[in-house]
């Protein structure tokens, strides 16, 4: 599905070069559920963002579904991730001004999908996540767990091939966390490829493979 080869990312401060990612190799097959772990500052989120094409890297190759991401222009890259990648954030990042329904609908709008089709798709997802009753509420009217549920629904609405989650349970209590994680497991079983960043061993255990990062390097 995707392959990283010798990825480096650095920032220069004065004469020093600080490496955020150092010679990272990673290959992900379709249907995997990978957990990236590591202490604070080890580069977990940076790696996830590089994979999600939200961030760039300075050296190395990145192939995503037979496209060479490192050779793509910004526009092509955003077209690519728009189509294949869904994001889930620790802080949910729902748009406060939009209702649950509209938040979920927004990615479809950006993909120029027709209204009738949008309605059907959103209705499906609402139904599946059992939040039909909440569709007209605004994010601030929901609990954290519910907000994250909406966040996941929004990430999945455009039927991505890859779901990226940056500490999806970080802001939730343990019960809510468990619910989210079991949802992830269920999605994975249905064939969704998932990469999550997490601090918690317990959450990592939901995945099929664990990658440990330390100072920007994959620990063997």
């Amino acid at each position: 599905m995707l392959e990283l080869k010798g990825i480096y990312k650095w920032v220069n401060t004065g004469n020093n070069r600080i490496f955020l990612l150092k010679d990272v190799d990673l290959s992900v097959k379709p249907g995997e559920f990978i957990s990236i772990m590591g202490p604070s500052g080890s580069g977990k989120s940076t790696l996830l963002n590089v994979i999600g094409m939200l961030d760039t890297f300075d050296q190395g190759e990145y192939n995503f579904l037979h496209e060479s991401v490192h050779q793509l222009k910004v526009k092509q890259r955003s077209a690519l991730y728009k189509q294949y990648i869904g994001f889930v954030f620790q802080a949910y990042h729902l748009i406060d001004e939009l209702t649950v329904y509209e938040n979920i609908e927004t990615p479809l709008i950006y993909q120029n999908i027709k209204t009738s089709e949008r309605k059907a798709l959103v209705a499906d997802v609402l139904d599946r996540f059992q939040i039909v009753g909440k569709k007209d509420l605004f994010p601030t009217q929901l609990s954290g767990g519910q907000q994250q549920l909406v966040g996941i629904a929004r990430a999945l609405i455009a039927k991505p091939k890859l779901l990226l989650a940056d500490e999806p349970t970080g802001n939730l209590n343990s019960k809510q966390g468990e619910e989210i994680m079991s949802l992830f497991r269920e999605l994975n079983r249905e064939g969704m490829t998932i990469i999550q960043v997490t601090h918690s061993e317990k959450n990592a255990a939901y995945g099929s493979r664990i990658i440990n990062l330390l100072d920007g390097m994959v620990a063997q």
Binding site: K75, S78, F87, H93, I95, E97, P107, Y110
Partner: peptide
């Protein structure tokens, strides 16, 4: 800014 960030992350192009 946050809204712009989210929108871009979920697939909005700049011209949109």
């Amino acid at each position: 800014a946050r809204e712009v960030g989210i929108r871009k992350a979920i697939g909005s192009l700049r011209w949109q």
